[in-house]
Design a protein around this nucleic acid. Structure first.
Lengths: 236, 236
DNA sequence: TCATGTCAAGTTGTATACATCATGCGTAAC
DNA sequence: GTTACGCATGATGTATACAACTTGACATGA
């Protein structure tokens, strides 16, 4: 949306940070797609700054795996392959489960209940035969995972997961979730939250792992990162 | 071209990469210690390049957690607290166990046997009453863990673990390993490798986790980073 | 039709310029 | 003797300069 002056964000006191977030956002929301060139010059012009902070941001993004650099040629949005995705899923499952396991006692009961309610009403909509609002489901999915992870006190773990999740969402954004997937997602979350409420942590962890690994299946099945059925619901 | 800043490393075709590795190495080997300033100007002079690639490298290192940036003030070697370390241990244990679990069949038997032999002779030296060669034990420890991790086919996982391990070693480098710790380390590795050879993966994973978490204990006990535990109580 | 050579435009990596700001030290004031 | 102030030094963030390179288009020739 806004091209410049996005530096209103909380602690973004320098242009490198601004550029970092702007470019990352571009990638996440697939305003630039997989394999596409990220010209430091153009980005600098777009963001109304010089190439220096842009290049610093791109260096970071390269290191994080969002961007590939072909030396002397340029920066490109990293091409995400099915293999990459499978790897991410594996690590994400392990880390989120760890996050959940490592802080049984810290779970905010109110938050849990609130999320469960949201999912329940989502389910009702689905049962009422309405076409699933994929965006809303994804949003709620993100919120739920973030909630579970955030209750870990391991800030390093939280950071790691955040990073993985973002790359994950980059792909999810592209993929088209089928009705069945939506049903599964909703169902899985409800079960998970209920299990958490009941205090059966062991089972909850198992469900969480299953749920994350399941996401892999539906994304891999028709993810456009190797074909391109661009059916994205653009928002902003 | 510049006056041959040593880009001896294989693929280091630009100065940013060179600077990145050089600074990272400085930190890892504690040539610059925790909390110390990393002046971009001085580094540039030392490395015979301009500030630009140095700053790009520092940006990456900041994002990786090796370096902290106080805006408008400068870059500093990240202060590692006991809490940081505990967090790292937790994540490292989970990830290394995942790496081990996820590739049972890929383990190189010869490599395994070779490592076991090394550890056995290390043990003999210890039993012979010789003062433990900490450096050698650590080296072997690194080698062993790298070996186990490398057999995973999840390259993303491998990268993550590599990164964590480096930060870990930064601290280990500082800590003084006692005789008992050395004995434990040696013993644990021997048991682990034997268990792996026997094919009891479940038990091997348990042992690996125990071993990694154990490392935390001896490091935390006399690591110099908690000499000033005053810094630990920082909150968001 | 295709291959080849040339050239302009744009990019890349790096160095340098420049204004602003942080820091430490000496001197003055108390 | 301690505190405060002011200034020199040097660091920071960012912009710009510059040579080398990539790229793609066009023209030329087979």
């Amino acid at each position: 949306m806004s091209k410049a002056a996005a530096s209103k964000e909380a602690g973004e006191s320098n242009l490198t940070q601004t550029a970092y977030h702007a470019i990352r956002h571009k990638i996440m929301t697939n305003q630039v797609t997989t394999g596409e060139r990220l010209s430091a010059c153009k980005l600098a012009r777009t963001l109304h700054m010089s190439r220096t902070p842009v290049r610093e941001a791109l260096s970071i993004l390269q290191n994080e795996g969002f961007v590939e650099i072909h030396n002397g040629v340029g920066f490109f949005v990293k091409v995400i392959t099915g293999k990459d995705l499978a790897e991410l899923v594996e690590v994400r499952a392990a880390l989120e489960c760890l996050a959940l396991e490592s802080n049984t006692l810290e779970l905010d009961r109110d938050g849990l209940a609130r999320l469960k309610d949201s999912w329940d009403s989502m389910k009702e909509q689905l049962l009422a035969g309405q076409k699933p609002d994929i965006e809303a489901i994804m949003e709620l999915d993100y919120e739920t995972h973030d909630f579970l992870v955030a209750s870990s006190r391991n800030s390093y773990l939280i950071d790691l997961i955040k990073n993985i999740s973002v790359r994950f969402r980059q792909v999810q954004f592209l993929s088209v979730m089928a009705l069945n997937d939506a049903r599964n997602t909703v169902e899985q979350h409800i079960t998970l939250l209920a299990t958490l409420s009941s205090g059966n942590m062991r089972e909850a962890v198992r469900l969480l792992r299953e749920h994350i690994e399941d996401a892999n299946v539906y994304i891999s099945s028709d993810g456009p990162y190797d074909a391109d059925e661009t059916l994205t619901g653009e928002q902003a």
